[in-house]
Design a protein around this nucleic acid. Structure first.
Lengths: 144, 144
DNA sequence: CATTGGACTGTATAAAAATTCAATGACCGC
DNA sequence: GCGGTCATTGAATTTTTATACAGTCCAATG
C-alpha cells in the first residue's frame, strides 16, 4: 500500500462524507483495508492541503504559489540560516541577486528588506520572532 | 469591546501575518487592547470560518448549504441502490419528482442526469466508479 | 558489498483546540 | 421588581492534532 494510494482514499472519503477527527478517518480507511495511524494522517492532511472546518475536513486550494520566487528559490537557494532577526540565504554563485529581487517583489509584510551579494542574501526582519516565522515559511517553500 | 469589533481585529491580523496558534492570536489581540482567551478565539474561528493551514490561519469561503436537497432527501428518501453506473433512489410515494428536482439543482458534476417516476428516481452517472462515489455521498447526506 | 542518505512510518509525548460547565449581564413580559 | 431566556465569556478539562525521536526500507554511491 503506497502513500499515493492512501492519499487517494483519503480524498475519496472526505469528499463523500463529513469526517471530524483524524481517528475517525483512520477507522474509515481501515474499512478500505488501509492501515494507518492518526500521526500519519496529520502529515497527510498537510500534504493534501486538507483543513478542518466546522463541517468536517475539506480540501483547500493551495495558496498562490508565489510565481517567481518559489521556483527560483527551489533552484538556487542552498541554505537558510537564522541569526537573531536576520536570515542568511546562501545561493549558487552569482544567483543571489535574482533570487533577492524575486523575494522583494513578493512583498512579504514580515520582511523589512533584503541585501544581496554574489552568493548570499541578507533578509532583515523586524525582530527575532518574525525572523523565525519567515525562516519557517522559506523552509516550507523549499521543501515543496 | 464588542464581539464584532474583536472579529474585525482577528480578520485584520490574520490577513496581515501568519498566525499559527490561538494563544499567539490572543497575544496579538492584546497588543490591540483586545483582551480575550483561547477559548473565545476557538469559537470565533468557527463563526468567522477561519481554518488552520500549514501557513497559518486563513479565511475560507462559506460552503454552499445544499439548500433544498439535503432536507428533502432526509425526509423522503428511503433507500439507495447501486446498479452499475446507475443509482436508484426509492422515496415515499409521490415525492420522487420534488427530490429529483432538488438534486438536479445541486448540479453535482458527477451526475449525468436524473429521471423521476412516482416513488423512484434514477440517477445516471458516467461510470461505475463515479456512481459509487455519488452513492457514498448520498449516504453521507442521509445519515447526518 | 558496505554505507549513506532520504522517504516514510509509528510510539510516545507535547501542544493546541474544542467542549463542558458555570457565571454574568442584557432584555424581555408579567 | 422578579423570573425567564438568550448571548457572551472564561476556567477547567477533555479531546484532538502536531512534534520529537527512532526505526525500517530502499535506492544510489563509492
Amino acid at each position: 500500500m503506497t502513500k499515493a494510494f492512501r492519499h487517494g482514499q483519503i480524498l475519496k472519503i472526505i469528499r463523500s462524507r463529513n469526517v471530524f477527527t483524524q481517528e475517525e478517518l483512520a477507522g474509515l480507511l481501515r474499512e478500505q483495508q488501509v492501515e494507518t495511524t492518526q500521526v500519519t494522517l496529520s502529515r497527510d492532511m498537510r500534504e493534501l492541503n486538507i483543513v478542518k472546518t466546522a463541517g468536517g475536513y475539506r480540501e483547500m486550494e493551495r495558496e498562490a504559489p508565489m510565481p517567481q520566487f518559489a521556483s527560483l528559490a527551489a533552484e538556487f537557494v542552498q541554505d537558510v540560516r537564522l541569526a537573531q532577526n536576520l536570515i542568511v540565504l546562501k545561493t549558487s554563485p552569482g544567483h543571489a541577486s535574482s533570487v533577492a529581487v524575486a523575494l522583494d517583489e513578493e512583498e512579504w509584510p514580515d520582511i523589512t528588506g533584503t541585501i544581496a551579494g554574489d552568493d548570499t542574501i541578507l533578509v532583515i526582519c523586524p525582530d527575532n520572532a518574525t525572523a523565525e516565522l519567515v525562516r519557517t515559511k522559506l523552509y516550507g517553500l523549499l521543501e515543496s
